[in-house]
Amino acid sequence: RHRTTFTSLQLEELEKVFQKTHYPDVYVREQLALRTELTEARVQVWFQNRRAKWRK
């Protein structure tokens, strides 16, 4: 699998949602996936990684 490189616009969208909730439900993730043109799975993994980073 290749590494997904996020654009600054995608990161902006993702971070905006992360500020509101660290655990977006499937509906929120789907909406975010559509807005960022990423798959829902990529969005889910981004949140997992972002939460790990936040905990440190």
Score class of each variant (00 low, 15 high):
1 R>A: 04
1 R>T: 10
2 H>Y: 11
2 H>V: 10
3 R>L: 14
4 T>C: 10
4 T>F: 13
4 T>A: 12
6 F>S: 03
7 T>E: 04
7 T>A: 05
7 T>P: 01
7 T>S: 08
9 L>C: 10
10 Q>L: 04
10 Q>N: 01
10 Q>T: 02
11 L>P: 03
11 L>Y: 05
12 E>W: 06
12 E>Q: 07
12 E>F: 07
13 E>C: 05
13 E>P: 01
13 E>Y: 09
14 L>M: 13
14 L>I: 00
15 E>N: 03
17 V>D: 00
17 V>N: 02
18 F>R: 01
18 F>C: 00
19 Q>G: 09
19 Q>I: 07
20 K>Y: 06
20 K>N: 07
21 T>V: 06
22 H>L: 05
22 H>T: 05
22 H>Q: 12
23 Y>K: 05
24 P>D: 00
25 D>H: 02
25 D>P: 11
25 D>R: 00
27 Y>C: 08
27 Y>Q: 15
27 Y>L: 13
28 V>A: 15
29 R>T: 14
30 E>R: 14
30 E>K: 12
31 Q>L: 08
31 Q>H: 13
31 Q>W: 08
32 L>I: 12
32 L>F: 03
33 A>P: 03
33 A>W: 01
33 A>D: 01
33 A>L: 04
34 L>Y: 08
34 L>C: 06
34 L>M: 13
35 R>P: 03
35 R>M: 06
35 R>C: 06
35 R>W: 05
36 T>H: 09
40 E>W: 05
40 E>F: 04
40 E>I: 07
41 A>R: 07
41 A>L: 08
43 V>R: 00
43 V>T: 01
44 Q>M: 14
44 Q>D: 15
45 V>E: 15
46 W>N: 02
46 W>L: 02
47 F>I: 00
48 Q>H: 09
48 Q>E: 10
48 Q>R: 10
48 Q>S: 11
49 N>W: 11
50 R>A: 07
50 R>G: 01
50 R>Y: 03
50 R>F: 00
51 R>N: 08
51 R>A: 03
51 R>Y: 01
52 A>T: 09
53 K>V: 10
53 K>G: 12
54 W>G: 10
54 W>S: 13
54 W>N: 09
55 R>M: 09
55 R>W: 06
55 R>G: 10
55 R>K: 06
56 K>T: 08
56 K>D: 07
